[in-house]
Design a protein around this nucleic acid. Structure first.
Lengths: 230, 230
DNA sequence: CCAAAAGTGTTGGTTTTACACCCATGG
DNA sequence: CCATGGGTGTAAAACCAACACTTTTGG
């Protein structure tokens, strides 16, 4: 650190990133939690996270944490909010920059260094959490639901190719309400963000096979934000 | 700091807050800038901000900075985003939590400690800025415009009592487009967030005097976010 | 041929936009 | 009495919500 001018009164603080990782599994919205292997809050469940290393950006730190817990890199990741109450960490002054990530259900969960255990927990049955992580998680959930209505972030919860019914189910799980099939399809198709493939979902039990779609990345997402699912 | 467990690898970083303070003045959207009195970027214009003191929360630090520059406390203040590129501050590793504030045009601007000068600058004619402050300001402006369309944040740019034309003009300045008078009035009145006072704007030159309104604070702002001004 | 899931249009109600004239006051 | 800004309604278009049957496949 080249801090020739660093003001003497400017104390440095601990800075961590915490990543709320959402995924749809077993027809439920789940979040990846770890059981803390070290104090403070040893044995308690927590959102995965860790301290920012000096040479890396905040986004890089979040990506690193995400990689350590899931092995994934190419997922939706967005900065959420920075939490900085003075007593939020009993070790001293630590602020945390919270992120949220969306991964599809083929992502594994592996325990990182300071975790004894990692598990996907349903957001509707969360254990007691360390630090202010309950607040962070709540905030992330609100933001996810909000974004789902206005943007096309929903695709990031699904694998590359998916059927319209799978997409609708994803929306229904996250929003916690049933949607009308015909209106849903009209809307999503009219929005022009899906490309239809020539392939179909095969070998999925009974019924007529469904066409597979892909999300068009190029789709302009920031036109003049119109609500996608009112 | 009671850091019995503080991990040795966890280096601490400089943490600052920067507050983008918007105000409507001279029929233009302005932002409060200070001219830096000390290195780095001495003599360059910058967004007001400073280091977070260990015992204060981030919000408190932002309020403190706001108070130092404007003497105000009771204004709209919202956390924006945290910027943390490794080289954003030449002194070393400093991340900054950016806030944005809205003040009405009776707010003064006074130079704080580390400012040689403070001035309200039109967002359409900004000088070159220190650090990554141009990026921060851009981000704040996008967020302000966005919020104005969806929420009732616009009232915070006006004094306590205002006429509908003043409110409409505020929206037009920030959004940078003309709005239809009848549709504007219908929308804002139907939204039920205004209380009409029995008073009128007096002594304002010519024409019929306009009724004064107040913003109803209690108004539920988070119903099911419907766009206020499409 | 039966069960299961995919796929597909229409209508009525609501919301949004575009648009032009009369009113109250001060000089 | 005129100039200035305040205040008001309506009609056409776009959008949204509700709703049920036919198609394709596997067993």
């Amino acid at each position: 650190m080249s801090d020739g001018y660093f003001p003497p009164g400017a104390e440095r603080l601990g800075v961590s990133v915490d990543v709320v990782i959402f995924s749809l599994r077993e027809a439920d919205l789940k979040v990846l939690l770890i059981r803390r292997a070290a104090p403070p809050f040893k044995g308690k469940w927590a959102i995965p996270g860790g301290f920012v290393h000096p040479p890396e950006s905040l986004d890089d730190a979040a990506l690193r944490e995400l990689g350590e817990e899931t092995g994934l890199r190419d997922v939706y990741l967005e900065q959420l909010y920075t939490f900085g109450a003075p007593k939020r960490d009993p070790r001293g002054r630590v602020i945390t920059v919270a992120y949220f990530a969306l991964v599809s259900d083929d992502a594994p969960a592996r325990a990182g260094d300071d975790a004894a255990e990692a598990a996907w927990c349903s957001v509707s049955a969360l254990p007691e959490l360390a630090f202010d992580h309950a607040e962070i998680l709540n905030y992330a959930l609100r933001r996810l639901r909000y974004k789902l209505e206005y943007t096309s972030v929903g695709f990031d919860l699904l694998p590359n190719e998916f059927t319209l019914t799978e997409l609708q189910t994803a929306y229904e799980i996250v929003l916690g309400e049933k949607l009308d099939k015909r209106n849903f399809r009209r809307r999503i198709l009219d929005a022009g963000v899906l490309a239809e493939t020539s392939r179909q979902r095969e070998g999925e039990g009974q019924g007529r096979p469904a066409r597979l779609y892909r999300y068009k990345k190029n789709a302009v997402t920031e036109i003049k934000a119109r609500r996608l699912f009112p």
